[in-house]
Design a protein around this nucleic acid. Structure first.
Lengths: 258, 258
DNA sequence: CACCTTATATGCTTATAGCATATATGCAAT
DNA sequence: ATTGCATATATGCTATAAGCATATAAGGTG
């Protein structure tokens, strides 16, 4: 019914160097599918979802931007591979990290058959800005969701000036599935907290929800339902450095004590 | 946060023949992970979820019951592999078939590293009973969900007499994730229709929902919300062969015309 | 034809979301 | 210090949907 991979296409626009690489590549040495993991590190800034991209240092698609990824070791679980790739390519550890979907179309990698298990991670903005990769360089990209209601199709990645960033492989499709998953989860699981620091104002939480869902929410209803859920607790601390009445800060409680 | 694979364990109870097979198995010939697909064919009968199991004809775990599965061809997409396995092992085609989750723990297959992409399919009872496999034999198993609220842990498979059926590998975990997914989806996607024939009474649809969710629903609220959703339409046909007032039959409409 | 069982319709009650309004409060300009 | 601003927080009204009970309809069975 839902086939998030159906729009993936083999990259056809390869330059001369890339074509030479592929011509010399010995695909026959890989008679079985290879397995990789890719991780979409999601955060929210300026009212929009952002992700973290790395520049590919090797062929294929050298120079293009891609989700941090890598091959799965033969004695390494998928979850462990995702955590390792995340740490190496972004320097981030101990994030909320969850499996998303597995992309396995035949032509998605021009070298040979590569099946990738996609993961997504959630981080708060301050932490992602302090992150430093152990290898390579990172780029922050704003996710631009085409307005087709519920999303699910490919999305665009934009740099700070609004220019579109070229994504490798089917990574735009992967980001589309991430957005769809986040929107679905937000309705019944409080993932919003993973995108905020430990203490936050309810307004910040609402902004997170609005950025993920792509629409405005009713302020009072949002406050009431969140507080009534018992999943947040007031801390008696107040915001500071705001030019208006500071709001009380809340924290996330896992054992809803009600 | 949610790790549906964490309870999987390598099968430790192997008989002498199985041990001999594994001792002779040349794991070194497979230096990379292999990729398989497994399909959970779900249906509802007698107020409970059922699945379809096949007896393993080969080692490892020869003789145990398993979800229909097989390896992914190097030029075959994951979706195509799942549909092929489904057709060969059960004779069923053109079902609702959707990717579920990918299980990749290191020890889940005693031979070598096998990563499996799990799918689930939905069929109505009459059709699954007419199905005949092209290879091997099938067994229907009732899914017994331990009462831990939302499920997600491993489940038990029972035969018609209520005896527990031994499942191979981590297939009990896979079925646990299937149940969890179905319960989650039922709230906002009308998958119930995939488990019924084309024309059905609202009571039948409610029984499907109750079997999947594992709890009774309010009859009036269910009827009102389903009819108001615009996703079903009355057909002016009535049930027949029932010893009481026959209900009107409904059909599923994809384009909600309201 | 009486009676059984389930379908279908209607009204009451309760919970919640959306919305509007009123008041509180920290900060900054005057 | 006072006033105004922007936002926080509280309260009440309304529309909507769910839970629940009751009443009536209708086919099958003896």
């Amino acid at each position: 019914m839902s086939d998030p991979t159906k729009k993936s296409k083999p990259s056809s626009a390869a330059n001369a160097e890339e074509r030479a690489f592929l011509a010399a590549y010995d695909a026959a040495a890989f008679p079985h599918p290879s397995v990789a993991v890719d991780v979409a590190v999601m955060s929210v800034a300026d009212g929009a979802l952002h992700t973290l991209l790395v520049q590919r240092g090797d062929h294929p698609q050298k120079g293009r931007l891609a989700l941090p990824g890598g091959f799965v070791g033969v004695k390494e679980s998928l979850d462990a591979a995702a955590a390792r790739v995340l740490a190496i390519k972004t320097g981030l550890r101990d994030l909320f990290l969850e499996q998303l979907y597995t992309f396995g179309d035949v032509g998605r990698d021009p070298r040979t058959r590569v099946i990738t298990v996609a993961y997504y991670a959630l981080v708060d903005r301050a932490r992602v800005l302090r992150a430093r990769p152990e290898q390579g360089a990172m780029v922050f990209a704003r996710i631009d969701v085409p307005w087709k209601g519920e999303a699910g199709g490919p999305v665009r990645a934009l740099d700070a000036e609004g220019r579109e960033l070229p994504l490798a492989f089917d990574h735009a499709d992967i980001l589309g599935v991430v957005v769809k998953r986040l929107r679905g989860k937000l309705g019944y699981v409080p993932i919003g907290y993973e995108l905020l620091p430990r203490r936050f104002a309810l307004r910040q939480l609402q902004e997170i929800h609005e950025a993920v869902l792509g629409r405005k929410l009713n302020k009072d209803s949002f406050r009431r339902s969140v507080v009534a859920s018992g999943l947040v607790a007031p801390t008696r601390e107040l915001e500071h450095d705001v030019p208006y009445r500071p709001a009380e800060l809340y924290r996330y409680v896992r054992s809803k004590s009600r």
